[in-house]
Simulated scan of single mutants.
Amino acid sequence: MLRIHFTGVDLARVRMAGRPDALWETILSFHRIRDRRDARLFGEWRTESRTRLNGETRLLGALIPSRGYFPDFLTPMEGQYGMDAGLDALRETRPQRLRAELALLTTEQEQPTRLREIADGQGPALARLASVLRAYHRAAVEPYWARIQAQVEAERAARGRAVLDGGADELLASLPPMLRWNPPVLECDYPVDRDVQLGGRGLLLQPSFFCRRTAVTLHDPGLSPVLVYPAQHASSPVGAEPSRARDGLRGLGKLVGHTRSVVLRAIGDGATTSELARRAGVSLASASQHACVMREAGLVTTLRHGNAVLHTVTPLGAALLKAGS
């Protein structure tokens, strides 16, 4: 069980990440690519990604076990600003930290040469690791980034509504079922028994596309607190981005017309079906039908929020709106 202890100051400093974190998505996707679970959702993605991999998994396999601890230096905070920023931070990791974190992974006697070189802080070894992470990211994550971004943005919109409804308390209570808010403690099913004292530092909530079943946090209590948790997924499987783009283009043909343009704009930063109907001046049934068509075209993502559904605009939908403005 993971228990995160909040003070009043921590509640005031809870915040949602503004975007997907490139390195967290990369590391967690490596967990997904090795298991056989969630085949309906990730099966096609696994098949597609594996065909693009060229040996990148060997070094990553030594650093990232199938379950349990992996080093914190693989997911620096700078990853939220993109892969380049994250890898720059990784390459600057101090040798003392590298040795300490890799010692938790394996004993020095068990470490293969490539890990001992990383633990020693050797520049070429860290450069090699950064290169491998980038290559893996390009093969397994980058081709699906628009989908990842849309899902995380939809999750962010849903949690933003919770904040508006009831502040940080409502936000923490609205998180996925594996997270349970029992004030002043946020509990989560976890592989080990652990308590995290925030101590006034606040908490960054980072929704993740590839995180599944349980949340993840950093091992080192001295690092800035972050909780990575599973973003709610739409029903369609991950994969076949090129074919989905063709499907989207066919779906765009359905969008020709003034009403759907108004409906797409009316979604704004997120809207339930009833709010969408009211903003666009259409019936509830019409708003639902228009949202369905736009979802099939890849312009809208729909997630359940309490007893309602919440529609948000995808990056493709936002680009279409921008082009039409």
Rank of each mutant, 00 (worst) to 15 (best):
V185S: 00
I27R: 04
R13L: 14
L310A: 02
D195I: 06
A140H: 03
P65E: 13
A277R: 02
S208T: 11
T113D: 15
D88G: 09
T214N: 09
G121Y: 08
E275C: 02
L204T: 04
Q111C: 07
V141Y: 03
L59N: 08
T272G: 11
R279E: 11
R134K: 12
G79R: 01
E56M: 07
Y144R: 08
E110K: 06
D38Q: 12
A240N: 13
A39N: 13
E142A: 15
E44P: 02
T57A: 15
A158T: 08
E275K: 01
G166F: 09
D88E: 15
P221H: 08
E78H: 13
R304W: 03
P176W: 03
L264I: 06
T113F: 07
G8F: 00
S283G: 15
W45D: 02
T301M: 03
L74D: 09
G248S: 14
T301S: 11
A17S: 13
G270C: 08
R201D: 09
T301V: 12
D247Q: 13
R194M: 08
I118L: 15
A140K: 02
L255T: 15
Y144S: 01
L179W: 01
P176V: 01
V196D: 05
Q289T: 08
A308Q: 11
C211W: 00
F210M: 07
G317H: 01
S286K: 11
P191Y: 09
Y69C: 14
A291K: 03
P20C: 07
G55A: 11
Q151D: 09
H5E: 12
G43N: 10
A266K: 08
